[in-house]
């Protein structure tokens, strides 16, 4: 029963129709989001226009953290239950998480120069984000240099060890004195970002998430074709 459901959902996932739907949603979200972020949303009282970098920086950071957490969670399934499908899913998710991590670091640097007065600071938040970037790099590299079965194990271990860093990134601004500001959006308290700036922030987050899903579907499709062509039942 369960296998029928997963087979069916797999078919939907790799259908070009579903991919096109995601692509259209992405285009709508991105164009409305960019219009909001660049034109409709107000300047900040202190940073004026450089606040607009936030609409790329914060969603990228969220997405890269989210994707790494998902990869680590799936890798647990890979290591413990030898789930083969999870291998393909996490392998296909990694590239977009890696790119968004890079975008978060670069845009943060561009924002830091006019705001703080420096491109880079060895501050706990920024350093831990760099560590996550290195873990992504190791994860992707392990697929390239090890042969198949080894790569599955090694990459899974890299991701579940790396996920320890995720709560460190999240709470670094609360645990230590950092140059980076504490989070403005919290589940329990009111956001310290004005509502007119939250609309573009959430729209951009949605569009980046849709973009990641789109890249994931393409990668996943390629991986499935690879498995099929090689006639490998096992990965």
């Amino acid at each position: 029963m369960l296998s029928i459901i997963t087979e069916k959902s797999k078919k939907i996932l790799i259908s070009s129709r579903f991919r096109n739907l995601i692509f259209i949603l992405f285009l709508i979200c991105l164009s409305v989001g960019l219009f909001e972020a660049l034109i409709l949303s107000p300047q900040d009282y202190l940073q004026s226009d450089s606040v607009r970098i936030m609409y790329v920086h914060v969603p990228s950071a969220w997405i890269s953290l989210g994707i790494f957490s998902i990869i680590a969670f799936l890798s647990l399934g890979v290591l413990i239950f030898k789930n083969k499908n999870f291998v393909l899913i996490s392998k296909s998710l990694a590239p977009s998480g890696f790119i968004f991590n890079l975008i978060a670091l670069v845009t943060g640097s561009i924002w830091g120069k006019p705001t703080w007065g420096t491109w880079w600071a060895w501050d706990p938040r920024i350093t831990s984000m760099l560590v996550l970037f290195l873990f992504y790099f190791l994860y992707l590299l392990s697929w390239k240099i090890f042969e198949k079965n080894k790569a599955i194990t090694i990459s899974s271990y890299i991701s579940i060890i790396g996920v320890i860093n995720v709560p460190i990134i999240k709470y670094s601004v609360d645990w230590w004195a950092t140059l980076h500001q504490p989070s403005s959006i919290n589940v329990l308290s009111e956001s310290t970002i004005h509502s007119s700036m939250l609309i573009p922030l959430f729209l951009m987050t949605a569009s980046f998430a849709l973009f990641s899903i789109l890249i994931f579907l393409m990668k996943y499709n390629v991986e499935l074709i690879k498995v099929k062509n090689k006639g490998l039942d096992r990965i």
Binding site: P42, Q43, D44, Y45, L46, Q47, V51, M54, T115, W116, G117, T118, A121, L179, Q181, P182, S183, S184, T192, I193, H194, S196, M197
Partner: peptide
Amino acid sequence: DKILAKHDENYMPPEVK
């Protein structure tokens, strides 16, 4: 020998300020 400005977590338009 170096001064950095620290930005806080508050973001708002000038009118609100």
